[in-house]
Design a binder for these strands. Structure first.
Length: 111
DNA sequence: CTACTGACCTAAT
DNA sequence: GATTAGGCCAGTA
């Protein structure tokens, strides 16, 4: 577990239920611009209960996990239990995109 | 050390 | 919408 991963995980933990963020968005907030791919590897290594990894989708609002993976369905159901509407593996980003509050942004500065 | 792999992103067809 | 191409760069083998 590197420090970069910890920063990513920390940001993901800030995403409130009912909202989603994109990989790139998380990377930026974690102070790691252009590292969207690192977010995905960090998340897959930390798919446990205290990390709401399911609230992270790609820039199109779609679930990026391959259908072949069992966790694809898991993300789908977890999102729905959060109250997020998912159609064709996709959420409406205009509606559900997480907009970090000011205090959340200030918190990021402690990185 | 080199080579390959992505749960990515953007822009251009 | 869908697809392609290029860029990206930390992990992994």
């Amino acid at each position: 577990m590197t420090k970069k991963w910890q920063q990513i995980i920390t940001v993901v933990k800030l995403i409130p239920a009912g909202k989603v963020a994109s990989y790139g968005q998380v990377a930026d907030l974690a102070g790691l611009p252009r590292r969207a791919r690192l977010v995905s590897t960090a998340l897959k290594a930390n798919s446990n209960e205290d990390v709401p990894w399911h609230r992270v989708v790609n820039s199109q609002g779609k679930i990026s996990i391959p259908i072949s993976e069992a966790s694809h369905q898991l993300q789908l159901s977890l999102l729905r239990s959060d109250g997020v509407v998912v159609n064709a593996g996709r959420v409406d980003l205009k509606k559900y995109r997480w907009q970090p509050s000011l205090d959340a942004l200030l918190f990021e500065l402690t990185f």
